[in-house]
Design a protein around this nucleic acid. Structure first.
Lengths: 213, 213
DNA sequence: CGTGAAATTGACTAAGTTCAATGGCGGTGG
DNA sequence: CCACCGCCATTGAACTTAGTCAATTTCACG
């Protein structure tokens, strides 16, 4: 990806706006583990993720990372901080190689957002964010660790085929020890069994579902 | 409030749209403690809060209410469920008398949201929501109970003049016992003193601030 | 095989909730 | 004027959930 035109969000822009946009933005490549921005950084740059996987997380007083979301292309990142002119409320780190279109938000024409197509894209992006955050609140504050594990097994059991337990624990914001203990409990209760290849076999979907509903 | 025109969100609508809107919406009054919608209800109605205070909360497995936000006029409520056609992710209950404009979302004209003014209002409302949820995540998952109390004392100390400790505890999503213990700790550490009228006197703002930053 | 990362397990700790008992205080009625 | 009632605040003790730390085992893979 190397042309702004190819980004759906901007595909409907007039030539005039495209030209403006090109002047105030540029693509940049990132390596795995590189930080895009830190929680608390000053706003002003709007990011469009065009390649790679970008993890968003907050850090608590003890230094633990609180996983919030992983973005995949194409997504807008950092719009809240830009729109509201507040510091970025979370940190963004690449977990694969990736590419970002960086846009100087302050230099965006005022009438840029008057474009109905752009408005709709922004509304879509914001709606997605509200949904993500609403989900984070549900998962982190309503569900117990056991419920989180039951939920991810039922809804994304295939993750266990491609991820180590430490990675899954980090996505669930629990420790590997806690995950291990809960899986052991589920095995003993005959709710699941674990294959050699780390694949999880669900024995009793219904009982698992009850745990998180 | 009894005319749609008076709602800023809709003040810029064309007569045609206003007429459509009038046909598919109506005002309704509510009493304190009445439920507007429950978490899990089917979507389809967009609510505009025109009077009163509306509390949004989720309920956990043990029946505890997790306070998320209190809306005051004028605000849009329930748009995520409508836009995404998912069940309402939280419960809304009036904590004073109030009034709501109920809009049948499915019967809204498709081109309704093409109106740039309406779009901007929706973007504003969604941005506000993202900010609210982002704050909830910060307060509930990053801050300790002690930090929550320190923060509310420094940023909204006047709340103690008008609210009982049980009410403040409920806003902070901690128990009254925990709040009491923390206030006692702050008193003993000479960070605050408490007047007869329940007013809180901050003795050391700086030390209090350090606790939550 | 051997090695290092990942998983498991046990003992302990931390934070906050729950439950129960007690204390204070303001309003009300005799 | 005071005794009583009910609500709120306070305090202690036990409990719950999950995290921390350390020791051990398992496992994948060169």
């Amino acid at each position: 990806m190397d042309r702004i035109k190819d980004i759906p969000l901007f595909s409907k822009l007039s030539d005039k706006h495209l030209k403006n946009l090109e002047q105030i933005s540029h693509f940049k490549n990132y390596n795995s583990d590189e930080i895009l921005f830190y929680e608390g950084d000053d706003p002003g740059t709007l990011y469009i993720l065009t390649e790679g996987v970008l993890r968003l997380y907050k850090t608590d007083a003890k230094g633990n990372e609180l996983y919030i979301h992983q973005f995949v292309p194409i997504g807008m990142v950092g719009e809240l901080a830009c729109f509201e002119n507040i510091n970025y409320p979370a940190t963004a780190r690449f977990i694969t190689k990736g590419q970002i279109l960086k846009i100087d938000f302050k230099r965006l024409e005022k009438d840029f957002f008057q474009n109905p197509e752009v408005c709709m894209e922004i509304i879509k992006s914001l709606t997605k964010k509200v949904k993500i955050l609403s989900n984070v609140i549900h998962k982190e504050m309503i569900l117990t660790s056991e419920a989180k594990v039951a939920k991810i097994i039922v809804e994304h059991g295939e993750l266990f085929e491609t991820h180590k337990n430490t990675q899954i624990a980090s996505i669930l914001n629990i420790t590997p020890e806690t995950l291990s203990r809960i899986l052991t409990r589920f095995k003993k209760a005959n709710l699941i069994s674990v294959e050699k290849n780390h694949h999880i076999n669900i024995i009793d979907t219904q009982k698992l579902t009850i745990i998180f509903e």
